[in-house]
Design a protein around this nucleic acid. Structure first.
Lengths: 146, 146
DNA sequence: TCCAATTCAATTGCGTACGATTTAATTTAC
DNA sequence: GTAAATTAAATCGTACGCAATTGAATTGGA
């Protein structure tokens, strides 16, 4: 890219960064009634797929380190979404499990999010295309950083 | 989307969020020699296009509020990238101007960033396609949020 | 002219992100 | 069997993001 083209508007990094922040705000609207933040919602998504994960596996899923997860999970435990337990078998690992509240909220939370997305008329096609492109971007960037 | 498909991997929001964080880390590598963070680099990109902008216009460009910009710009002033001045004509506006260091660093910083991107073999086509898709996503999300 | 509405930047408080380091538990190599 | 290496979570410090509020400066209408 020529130096003249290095404008804010031409930067892929900025459009992705901007889209990400707008997405977070949009989801925050849907999640507000549940007193959940967006990263907290991502934790729940992962736990709804696989309950009882050790902290480091949650970290692999979401690409978070313990420095981000430890306080995040502590807040979620305080609000009753999950529990944190050291299993006697390996007391280095912290097992994260959903509480009843965490499990039972799946339906209502997913409904709220889906309704919010659908209401705004997201085309399936645009969604899928953007998903594929950005997944490829993630793969590429992961390779670039290792 | 059916409820079974509400997996982390299927979420556009997560792939965009993940890509954004990976981009930030990648750029951070290129910017480290200049002691610049990624958001600080975005400020410079905007000022290189238009010097002497009031704070709120920078905010429009980057979609930041004064709560984010005030401390961000203060740090950049402390490190000698820019100056903050209240013009006598309207003492509500804070005019942000590049210092000599800020202006003169444009070449070296852009070179470092471009080399970093090019070195990793980013294809022009993939870049452009992802740019267009994500710009459309930004437009859509902005409409959804207003 | 004068005061109510508006426009701005700054402040406050909270929750991420993340590099770097520390501390504790377990595994391994000898 | 034990010291070294490894694995894992927690801690520390810094820098965003952003909702909500505050406070100062300006504008505009009666």
């Amino acid at each position: 890219m020529a130096e003249e083209d290095m404008t804010l508007a031409n930067q892929l990094c900025f459009s992705v960064y901007h889209a990400s922040r707008l997405f977070t705000r949009f989801y925050q609207q849907a999640l507000q009634p549940f007193e959940l933040t967006y990263p907290q919602y991502l934790i729940l998504l992962s736990l709804w797929e696989n309950d009882r994960q050790p902290l480091h596996r949650l970290g692999e899923q979401l690409d978070f380190g313990s420095n981000t997860l430890t306080p995040l999970l502590r807040r979620m435990e305080q609000r009753g979404w999950l529990t944190r337990q050291l299993p006697p078998s390996d007391r280095r690992q912290l097992i994260i499990s959903l509480t009843d509240k965490g499990r039972e909220s799946r339906g209502p939370i997913l409904s709220a999010v889906q309704q919010c997305v659908r209401q705004q008329g997201f085309r399936r096609e645009q969604y899928q295309q953007a998903l594929v492109i950005n997944q490829a971007l993630v793969t590429k960037l992961e390779k670039m950083l290792d």
